[in-house]
């Protein structure tokens, strides 16, 4: 499965690149990721939960990078869902902003894990990546993922549709949401 998405962020390329290059930042805006831990100069350990099956973890390495311009990575070892990705940072014509172009490739296995991943991405898989990039833009331009009453948990907005009503959260909901 090949996914591509792009957005424009009103920050200079070095800043956007630096945020992405610290791979531990990825889970703040990528919905399917729980955690990314840096394990070396170019290596890292990734974990994803519900959508990819329970406690799915894999190692990854950066295979090519050009500071402020491009990062390319791939999973290594025995990943249950082998995957790779490229992100390019291109100065936008306005002289202020940066175009972020992302391409991801998932090598979907047979069996339950493959089915779970395919179901998670649905009929228009790029939409999830579009949403990820919207949150990246929110984080870099405004400082955090934007929350509303209908979508109070930030990066889980789309999977909650139809959402809870647009009314303030109860204490119980806040506690439950913080755990989830």
């Amino acid at each position: 499965m090949d996914l591509t998405a792009t957005t424009t962020i009103r920050k200079p390329a070095p800043e956007v690149y630096a945020f992405w290059r610290d791979l531990e930042n990825l889970p703040t805006f990528m919905a399917h990721l729980d955690q990314v831990r840096t394990t070396g100069a170019t290596t890292s350990h990734w974990s994803a939960s519900a959508p990819f099956g329970k406690d799915l973890e894999w190692d990854a390495e950066i295979v090519d990078e050009t500071p402020t311009e491009k990062i390319q990575w791939r999973s290594t070892g025995e990943a249950a869902v082998p995957n790779s990705g490229t992100v390019r940072f291109v100065p936008a014509p306005d002289g202020v902003s940066t175009e972020v172009h992302v391409a991801l490739v998932y090598d979907l296995p047979g069996g339950a894990v493959g089915k779970a991943v395919a179901k998670y991405f649905g009929e228009e898989p790029h939409q999830l990546l579009d949403d990820d990039l919207r949150r990246l833009k929110q984080v870099l331009e405004t400082g955090e993922v934007v929350r509303s009453d209908g979508a109070p948990w930030g990066k889980r907005a789309r999977e909650e549709f139809p959402q809870r009503p647009a009314q303030p959260l109860s204490d119980a909901e806040v506690e439950k949401g913080a755990e989830a």
Partner: peptide
Amino acid sequence: NPNAGIAEKMFGHPVAGIFGYSHLTGGYA
């Protein structure tokens, strides 16, 4: 607009969040 992806489907590109004005514009109380 946390629901920008939904608004984009209707309008081609998303629009801002608006208070009390459907989930299409964010789901803000």
